[in-house]
Structure formats: structure tokens, C-alpha cells
């Protein structure tokens, strides 16, 4: 990788200042995506601001009807968390299937969201659960956070500090692996929120995570795997690559949604 300057702030304000300080500065969380991109010379920040030593940026807390997860919490911690496992088992399950064991030991929730990789798993949970993203300066609704391919509502130098996940009545995530990278070729997160709203968030299929309106309305009418599976999803605007064209991805969305619904119903017994 190219040379860069390394900074290690001790607090969020200090980190924000360092990021604001220099135009080519970038925050380093777990580094799973950023360091890989730098090694392939696809990214070349002048300054890396390492968030790894900031106190209080990681951790999981149940706060009323919400699970608050610090931005620097690693996937392995979320996967192993008894609180998450009890309150939102689908989220623990999702975290436990990101990348591989070694990646889960380094990768973080905040890093994943800030990167907004179209094939990342977490965005599906954030959008599916209608979570809120807390930053050093504000709180952003999931709907407003994900803008486009690798693009979020974060302003330059703005840091994610935590994510608040409302505890749903039930939820499930089903992921279909891209065979090489093990990212989601398509991942579908189905949630029935505390207020009974059905939300279906899809990752991997489009340039950015999105809600599958046709499946949501089908499920609102009848919450069954058959209803989800029968919903039509348009291939318009979906991703195409050697591992699947837009038609394949569009076809997989209701197939996987139906499986997620089946899981939910099975769990409810």
C-alpha cells in the first residue's frame, strides 16, 4: 500500500478533529474493507485515524425496547452476545455469518455501515429493523442513511458512534452467498416490528440496500412464506455480474424472503 500518516485518537471529539484536519484523512475501524482496498491500491488515504483505542465506542446494551450497539463492536461480539441473542436473535445470527471467523474478530458494525458495501449484511438488518444510526453530531434514520453504492448520509469527518436497533416482534435473515467472496449475492432481512409493521430489506441485489415493497405489501396481507415467495420483484436497476444477473437476483429475493418468513413462523411454532 501507499504511505500514509497514522493517528490514534483517544476520544471521539479528537478523532473528529483529526478527520476534519486533513482532507485525505479516513477513519480506520476494523479495517477489513479499507485495508484490503489499500493493499490493492484502490484506496490511498493520506491519514488513517485509528478508532481502535477510543474508550466506550464498543459494547452492547439493552435500553428499553432497543439494543444499542457501539460502532466499534466487532461482529464476533454481536454474534456471541447473550443480550442480542435474546432480544434480536436474527441480528446475532446475521453477525455470526459475516465473512469468516477471522474477519468477524476484526470487522465492526460502524465500519461496515460507513462503507455501505452493496453486498454487506449489516445494512439489511439496519434497514429491516428501522434502526437509527448515532453519530458524533446527530441521529440518522436508516431510511435516510444509505444513499447509494458506497455512499451514505455521513458528512465528511462524521463518525458513527452507535446504532440503536428497536427490538422487533420477530425477524430473520437469509443470505445467499456469492460463491467466491462469501458476501451476500442476495441477503433478505424480514422483520415484524414492535408495532406490527412488516419490513423486508434486501442487500446484495442492488447498488445499495433497499426495501422490497411488493413483498412487504404481500406479507402485510398474509404473513406466509407462500405470500412472500409469490411476490414479484422487478429486476430493474439490480446488479449484474458473473455470479448473477439482475434477473437472477430479482428471482432470489422472494425465494429468500419466503425462507426468512418460514424461519420466523417456525420459531413462533
Amino acid at each position: 500500500m501507499y504511505e500514509f500518516e497514522y493517528r490514534r485518537p483517544a476520544s471521539v471529539p479528537e478523532a473528529v478533529e483529526m478527520l476534519r484536519d486533513r482532507e485525505g484523512a479516513k477513519a480506520l475501524a476494523g479495517g477489513m474493507s479499507l485495508l484490503s482496498a489499500m493493499k490493492l491500491r484502490l484506496a490511498s488515504p493520506d491519514v488513517l485515524v485509528d478508532l481502535g483505542r477510543i474508550e466506550g465506542m464498543s459494547g452492547i446494551r439493552l435500553e428499553g425496547a432497543e439494543v444499542r450497539i457501539g460502532a466499534m463492536t466487532r461482529h464476533a461480539q454481536v454474534a456471541a452476545s447473550a443480550e442480542v441473542g435474546k432480544a434480536i436473535p436474527a441480528l446475532a445470527d446475521l453477525a455470526g455469518r459475516i465473512g469468516d471467523r477471522q474477519v468477524r474478530n476484526r470487522g465492526t458494525l460502524g465500519g461496515s455501515l460507513a462503507n455501505s458495501d452493496p453486498a454487506a449484511c449489516y445494512p439489511a438488518a439496519v434497514l429491516g429493523l428501522d434502526a437509527r444510526i448515532e453519530t458524533d453530531r446527530r441521529s440518522i434514520a436508516a431510511e435516510a442513511f444509505f444513499i447509494d453504492l458506497f455512499e451514505t448520509a455521513l458528512q465528511s469527518g462524521e463518525l458513527i458512534t452507535a446504532v440503536r436497533f428497536p427490538v422487533p416482534r420477530s425477524a430473520a435473515y437469509v443470505k445467499f452467498h456469492q460463491p467466491a467472496s462469501r458476501f451476500a449475492l442476495v441477503g433478505v432481512f424480514v422483520a415484524v416490528t414492535g408495532s406490527g409493521e412488516v419490513r423486508v430489506a434486501v442487500t446484495g441485489a442492488g447498488p445499495v440496500v433497499f426495501r422490497a415493497a411488493s413483498i412487504e405489501s404481500a406479507l402485510a396481507r398474509e404473513f406466509s412464506a407462500a405470500a412472500a415467495g409469490a411476490a414479484a420483484v422487478s429486476a430493474q436497476g439490480l446488479n449484474s455480474d458473473m455470479h448473477g444477473d439482475a434477473d437472477y437476483r430479482a428471482h432470489l429475493i422472494p425465494v429468500l424472503a419466503a425462507r426468512a418468513v418460514a424461519q420466523i413462523l417456525e420459531r413462533q411454532g
Partner: peptide
């Protein structure tokens, strides 16, 4: 104690 891929971690980390 955590297994990590040392090719994707900086020595300074």
C-alpha cells in the same frame, strides 16, 4: 486470543 488475518491488520494496530 482472537484468530485474525495478519495480512489485513496493521502492525500499529
Amino acid at each position: 486470543g482472537d484468530a485474525v488475518k495478519s495480512c489485513t491488520m496493521l502492525a500499529v494496530q
